[in-house]
């Protein structure tokens, strides 16, 4: 019993031979439809913010520097490569590339920044309502930790001491109107 098992095991090992791939000395291609690093085509993007609103990892950030200039930042450090952003983009501006060799010493290498010039509405003079009601502004509310640079200053203090007063203050937090305010 023992011996026959051992013989079978030897055969099991010998038959396939070496299966280890020569990677990384030779490239290892990936199949069609692979979900690698997402890439943005700024020609196609209309700045609707759909990708940022649907990203499960909340790793696409939007900031409006002024009426006409919207900055979109993709921070790959937290990306899960789920491809949800590419699914929801109405303009097919996002492609999941085949790029998977993403190890790097600097997080900046993983980030993409896109500056979009936004058209202004002829009637009201702005693209969307700037109150906390619409989806794009909700993304900037407290909670999404470092999506929001201003909130970063408030949150660590309030959570460390769990001071409800501090929380109330953050509830009333108002977006700065100008850069540097």
């Amino acid at each position: 019993m023992w011996l026959t098992s051992k013989i079978k095991q030897v055969l099991l090992v010998i038959k396939p031979g070496t299966v280890t791939l020569p990677y990384p000395f030779e490239p290892h291609p990936v199949p069609e439809g692979y979900r690698g690093q997402p890439s943005w085509d700024h020609h196609k993007c209309i700045g609707c913010g759909g990708c940022a609103a649907h990203c499960p990892a909340r790793t696409i950030f939007i900031r409006d520097l002024c009426q006409d200039l919207r900055v979109m930042v993709y921070d790959g450090g937290r990306c899960t490569y789920c491809g949800r952003c590419a699914d929801v983009c109405p303009e097919k501006a996002i492609t999941m590339t085949k790029n998977y060799e993403l190890a790097t010493g600097s997080k900046k290498d993983l980030c993409t920044t896109m500056e979009l010039f936004m058209a202004t509405c002829n009637r009201c003079g702005r693209c969307y309502e700037m109150e906390t009601k619409n989806a794009i502004d909700r993304m900037n509310l407290k909670g999404y930790r470092y999506d929001n640079l201003e909130m970063r200053a408030v949150l660590p203090v309030c959570t460390e001491q769990f001071d409800t007063g501090m929380l109330a203050k953050s509830d009333r937090f108002k977006r700065p109107e100008r850069i540097g305010e």
């Binding site: 019993m1 023992w2 026959t4 098992s5 051992k6 079978k8 095991q9 055969l11 099991l12």
Partner: peptide, 12 residues
């Protein structure tokens, strides 16, 4: 099937 046959009777 090969793996199964190789381990199923292994007394170790």
């Amino acid at each position: 099937i090969t793996i199964k046959n190789a381990i199923i009777g292994d007394t170790a």
